[in-house]
Design a protein around this nucleic acid. Sequence first.
DNA 1: CATGAATGAGCTTTCATTCAT
DNA 2: AATGAATGAAAGCTCATTCAT
Lengths: 192, 192, 192, 192
Amino acid sequence: MSKEKIILAAVDVFSENGYHRASMDEIALRANVAKGTLYYHFPGKAQLFKTLVAEGFQEIIDKIRADLQANLTLEEQIRKIIRHNLDLFLESSGLAHIVFNELSNSIDQDVLEELKILRIQYIHFLAEVLEEGKQEGVLRDINCKLAAAGIVGMLDSACNYFMNNTNELSRDHIERFFYTIITSGLFMTSGE
Amino acid sequence: MSKEKIILAAVDVFSENGYHRASMDEIALRANVAKGTLYYHFPGKAQLFKTLVAEGFQEIIDKIRADLQANLTLEEQIRKIIRHNLDLFLESSGLAHIVFNELSNSIDQDVLEELKILRIQYIHFLAEVLEEGKQEGVLRDINCKLAAAGIVGMLDSACNYFMNNTNELSRDHIERFFYTIITSGLFMTSGE
Amino acid sequence: MSKEKIILAAVDVFSENGYHRASMDEIALRANVAKGTLYYHFPGKAQLFKTLVAEGFQEIIDKIRADLQANLTLEEQIRKIIRHNLDLFLESSGLAHIVFNELSNSIDQDVLEELKILRIQYIHFLAEVLEEGKQEGVLRDINCKLAAAGIVGMLDSACNYFMNNTNELSRDHIERFFYTIITSGLFMTSGE
Amino acid sequence: MSKEKIILAAVDVFSENGYHRASMDEIALRANVAKGTLYYHFPGKAQLFKTLVAEGFQEIIDKIRADLQANLTLEEQIRKIIRHNLDLFLESSGLAHIVFNELSNSIDQDVLEELKILRIQYIHFLAEVLEEGKQEGVLRDINCKLAAAGIVGMLDSACNYFMNNTNELSRDHIERFFYTIITSGLFMTSGE
DNA sequence: CATGAATGAGCTTTCATTCAT
DNA sequence: AATGAATGAAAGCTCATTCAT
């Protein structure tokens, strides 16, 4: 089906080039369809982008939700959140990065608004998990939404740095690193 | 002087529109110079951008350096780093965000390379401060560069979220929030 | 039947948008048929347009003919011609205007030729009525075709002006106005 | 100068093709400038069109005004108006026709509005001349604006018909024809 | 130093038309 | 008789860059 091919090609092209440098020509070329076909299935570039972002978010939210259903301790939940976000930023790096960061000011106002909402929804979804931990007294009394936003930014930025500069660290190592930082901070504590 | 006017105008325009939607026309207009003048002083858009980014980085590095020269405890140093980064992301928000995030794949390869180096230099500068703390045994045994990249990303993302969605939190509150998270993590510790 | 639905929808869409901005998509949408159906019934956009124009002309010619069959004085005939043309331009304004005016240079040459012929036929039909009056010595010795063309243009242009700018004049008033102008001209004559 | 070349080329291209089929590429080609140059001098197609229409109107209004300054009888004034309008429709036929007729529904709303205003201004300019005649008791007590609109439409339509179908009539003949029709109507009057 | 008219490659988008079903 | 997914040529427009002055 054309629509599916287009979305797959679009994910690649947007990931590789960022929103603005991705061209509809290139997407059509990679999807092996005529340029007009893009506009048959999507109203325009911005809407096409929004569609694939929405799909991507839904996918990761579903994955995390499925993973969290069992009776897990908060520790395990946070570990899983980190793991899935690392997946997101290491594997479909380009796209995730665009969504979380490149959207600043560009793009049609209305579509931008929808994208921001998707991003916020994701952050709120993560915040909810933290909120539970707070209720149970395991977490500090913090603003969970701000913390969730911070965690996502930290993971993205660090993955970004990591992929551009080092490959010496193992995937597993990185995961443990962030788990420690997020749960216990940078400082040594007496017991350790 | 034209060159200075151009840089000032460029900072505004890039901040407001992101790299790609910022146009040389708009910059010339705001700088009150002819378009040709931009190309008299700078080889092109990418180079102009690089120039102002480099100046911006130098500025903040200088500020932090000046602040850290006294004999401060690591706690104080981290607090100051957070404070200056918050300044950066809350005040000259647009530009800082572009530098740390929007650069993924766009822009001429060569200039992009230089910009990445500037960003890395800044992260390494922060990493050095952490490194000292590690030597002194105050910090855990972590990869300081990864930690520095993470801190910058966390601050940017959270500021971004904060500015778009809430204004209920005070500047001071945010600063303390991040200090706690970064130093001690999300989890309650026995002594608290 | 699809064909009928398409013509009705096409009349609306062409009227509202003019020939060029009328789109086959819009026509299909309004006709509640698939786009392909348009091409099943008509060879293309130009042919579809020609069809409905021909039908429209036939309709008004039939109406006028029916009205003129009785033994009317020339005065009455001219009054009726004015009345029917006002109907045409005030009621199905858009379409009539397109046929009489918008066709200048656009549209496929061959279809354009046919449309021009339809328009000329209509003008000649009106000219014939005038011709009779000339034979009877009621009308001046003029080029009746030129006069017919002029009358149609005058009515269209004035209706167009009237609809865009004023609504203060009654339909009846306009009709009498044109009757006077056409029959007796602008100048006062001694007897009046 | 490019701007002048563009306007001249645009007049030709719009005249020959009508507004919609005139392409910016074609205009650039004929003006011997790059496509970008069009957009350097004019904000867009609609604005370019508006510019040349405005210039054209100003030209003919100026011409008629200059001609009417002397102490002429109303008869002479009307004769001159007819003469100039015939010039307009016979010589720069395409363009005049577009302005008076093709503008129905297309074109950017705001520019369309301005074009309509220009057209109305011209009609009102003609109406003023008639108004004077009315004051002097030479003309019937009619709505002069409606009459002016009618005259313009009559001349355009008849010229259009004439150019497409006959060339047997002399320019001079046509002028006298319209003078008679407009002043005295179609009907024979006792004195003739 | 500074200008601004001119460029042209490249972009997104539109739409009449085709064709396998 | 009817469909609708797919097409691709062509359109309007943007903008970083050049260059004669």
